[in-house]
């Protein structure tokens, strides 16, 4: 296996270590802790008042547009990263290219700003 793929194997192993650590902690607790569930204990916590209605209540997610903006900028970051490492090689041409790219993205943000998307509606 190449070193490149090996390093990803290491990443995967570390992820599994995280899972294993949680399992060990919870397993250890299982031996020590009591288990006497009652009806009151398993009730959802609502500051001591009996919970009413559906627990998955509808909430007004005011910032779903932010999620769309996020996708835009996140994809942008994917493009800027490789450019950033090779800036010296691209020189002035690369700089102007990227300035135009960032400017267009900024326009998008400004548009959203002007449209009042960034305000708490």
């Amino acid at each position: 296996m190449s070193d490149f793929l090996r390093s990803y194997l290491t990443v995967g192993i570390f992820g599994l270590v995280g899972v294993a650590l949680v399992s060990v902690f919870l397993g250890l607790g299982k031996i020590l802790r009591p288990n006497k569930p009652t009806l009151a204990k398993t009730e959802a916590y609502e500051s001591g008042v009996e919970p009413t209605g559906d627990m998955w209540s509808q909430a007004n997610i005011r910032y779903y547009v932010f999620a769309l903006l996020f996708v835009m900028f996140d994809v942008e970051a994917v493009f800027i990263f490789p450019w950033a490492t090779r800036l010296e090689a691209y020189g002035t041409f690369g700089l102007i290219e990227m300035a135009i790219f960032i400017f267009i993205l900024l326009l998008g943000l400004l548009y959203a700003w002007r449209k009042g998307v960034l305000k708490w509606a």
């Binding site: 607790g29 009591p34 288990n35 569930p37 398993t42 009730e43 959802a44």
Partner: peptide, 12 residues
């Protein structure tokens, strides 16, 4: 202390 605490799953 936390190891000895009961593990409660909410009913729903």
């Amino acid at each position: 202390k936390f190891l000895q605490k009961e593990d409660i799953f909410p009913r729903k």
